[in-house]
Design a protein around this nucleic acid. Structure first.
Length: 546
RNA sequence: GGGCCGGUAGCUCAGUCAGGCAGAGCGUCUGGCUUUUAACCAGACGGUCAUGGGUUCAAUUCCCAUCCGGCCCGCCA
């Protein structure tokens, strides 16, 4: 079975970039074109960045293969005929507004446990079903990242008949199917039938199969209780018959069936599948469907801010939220890193991720020193994270962008960025525009994490202040000094002098300044900051006039 | 209980496949700016490579055991 160890695809390669390792393995198989790359997830609730592994890991490999001249199809199966097992705590509308269950009809959802996602009404009423709603959000996540995928609904594969032959084939060979699966699952017994029927009476997917006639294409069932985790969903007891299109294969068979029907050449999957579904899937693909399993790749799971991603506990972050704080290219870059490592998506330290990306980019353009290893990785990985390779692009360091975010005047932002040397004189217009777009992202990051960059210049209205006479006198003198057009360092020095000459504590005097500008006790280095704001405003504000 | 993956500086991570002086960025500290607050420049500090054994001239790297985080053997990125 070592031939199908899903870890060796990357482990056994000497490539610096895992995407090359996978692409090499795929090429070794000499697959027909277009090469098919698949991912898939149950549309069970709000999609988070963990789910994006199923899309972005495949995309990275697709891009490497395309760079090598191959034609590639990236399909994504919405495994939407799976059962709703539990009611999620949170949902999201199509605009990514996360809402608690109380805001929708939770009772209605609770009554749908055990039914396929696509048989449950959309709680928001905007899509054809619960499944369609969350598949829609998954598709939108891909779109936000600029990744083209073909979304395939499992439900449609069954209902439309594309899955009928494989389903019949499994049922015709159910004895053998049972034997193979029993090697991997202790619970498989003599009476096991690899099919779940959608009860005509209550709609629950039942395992209570009493008879099958593959040739006629019918399955007789009795709607028994279904055990899902530690919950039991009551069956209604109805006895009836369905066609092969009105139910589904259990996951262990459905996955290899997808490989067969969709002709899958490569599929990345989470570590949860590495030792369960994957080996049994390989055996079923070879022993039942007589197809070669795809090239496998295991990815480790992410944590978010140090804790497990968990829909039920609410520790999730969506693509939309992430992309409010950084560019799509940076998020893609996160997925270009080694899939074998457990990785934390740390919102508090997003600046480090962005800095790392900037460096990665600079290595690609040969602008900084780097090891051969780093260079080799950037060479083939960078083109998968950006759409256009443009050496003239401009990147303002993320934390500096956060500083610029303290003011919302776009011209001032650009002026400061230029003065500090973060925008070259000959930078093209598009590059400046994109560079300054990062300011909005960094601002949002500062706001969300409420970190040391979260200063909000109170430009519109002066904060409520109450200074003593000495402080007021010193502020007036500082205003006069600023009015003369002094530079930042001079203003900084003057602040000290004024504090001393008016017998004020230096710290208190600085705090007065921060209070006037930000309604806070501390802030960025005051002199240079004052020098960078428009002078009239600063002078008026120091005089407490507006 | 059996098995699989991960653990490298305060933080985020390279490096381990193929054994050969322990790496980067950020943070911290120091100095520069004639005077506490850096978004600038220069420099320094920082590690028992989770722990303990073993193999080897040499181990972060290979082997064994243990600890920690997570996963699989029931469903689920």
């Amino acid at each position: 079975m070592s031939d199908h160890d899903p870890y060796v695809t990357i482990d056994d390669s000497d490539r610096a970039f895992w995407g090359d390792a996978v692409a090499d393995t795929i090429e070794t198989r000499d697959p027909d074109e277009p090469i098919v790359i698949k991912g898939g997830v149950s549309p069970s609730g709000v999609p988070h960045i963990g789910h994006l592994n199923e899309i972005v890991r495949g995309y990275v490999v697709a891009e490497v293969l395309r760079d090598r001249g191959h034609e590639v199809r990236q399909v994504f199966t919405a495994d939407d005929r799976d059962r709703l097992r539990k009611v999620p705590r949170q949902l999201a509308d199509l605009e990514w507004n996360v809402v608690g269950l109380g805001e929708v009809d939770a009772g209605a959802l609770g009554r749908n446990l055990g039914k396929p996602y696509t048989s449950i009404p959309d709680p928001f009423g905007c899509c054809g079903s619960y499944g369609a709603h969350f598949t829609n959000l998954l598709a939108r996540s891909a779109e936000l990242l600029g990744i083209p995928i073909e979304v395939v609904s499992n439900t449609e594969l069954y209902a439309g008949g594309e899955f009928e032959d494989v389903t019949r084939h499994v049922l015709s060979n159910r004895g053998r199917a049972r034997e193979i699966l029993a090697d991997y699952q202790a619970s498989v017994d003599e009476g096991y039938v690899p099919f779940q029927a959608e009860c005509r009476s209550c709609g629950v997917l039942t395992d209570g199969i009493v008879d099958v006639d593959p040739e006629a294409g019918t399955v007789a069932y009795e709607c028994r209780d279904v055990t899902v985790g530690d919950e039991t969903i009551e069956g209604c007891g109805h006895e009836g018959e369905v066609t092969l299109r009105e139910g589904k294969l259990p996951w262990r068979f459905e996955w290899p069936a997808q490989w067969s029907v969709l002709d899958v050449d490569f599929e990345p999957f989470g570590k949860d599948h590495a030792e369960g579904s994957w080996p049994s899937g390989v055996a079923i693909a070879e022993g039942i469907f007589d197809v070669e399993p795809p090239v496998p790749m295991v990815y480790e799971w992410f944590t978010l801010n140090g804790d497990a991603l968990s829909s039920s506990s609410g520790n999730v972050i969506t693509a939309a939220e992430v992309l409010s704080m950084l560019e799509p290219a940076v998020l893609r870059y996160f997925f270009v890193k080694d899939p074998r490592k457990q990785r934390d998506f740390d919102v508090a330290h997003l600046d480090q991720l962005v800095d790392e990306f900037d460096r990665f980019e600079a290595v690609y353009f040969d602008e900084i020193e780097a090891s051969d290893e780093e260079r080799e990785r950037a060479e083939s990985a960078y083109p998968t994270v950006v759409d256009d390779l443009r050496a003239e692009r401009v990147r303002i360091p993320y934390t500096f962008a956060a500083v610029l975010g303290m003011t919302d005047d776009p011209d001032l932002r650009e002026e400061i960025a230029r003065r500090e040397g973060h925008i070259p004189d000959d930078a093209p217009e598009w590059a400046i525009e994109e560079a300054l777009a990062r300011v909005e992202s960094a601002r949002e990051w500062a706001r969300r994490t409420d970190n040391e960059f979260n200063y909000d210049l109170k430009r519109e209205e002066i904060p409520a202040v109450d200074f003593d006479a000495d402080t007021e006198a010193a502020l007036d003198e500082l205003a006069d000094f600023v009015a003369e057009g002094q530079d930042g360092e001079a203003i900084q020095g003057r602040i000290y002098e004024l504090a001393e000459s008016h017998d004020l504590d230096v710290g208190d005097f600085f705090a007065a300044g921060y209070r006037l500008l930000f309604d806070l006790e501390e802030g960025p280095k005051l002199g240079p900051f004052l020098a960078k704001l428009d002078r009239e405003f600063v002078v008026d504000r120091l005089r407490r006039e507006r």
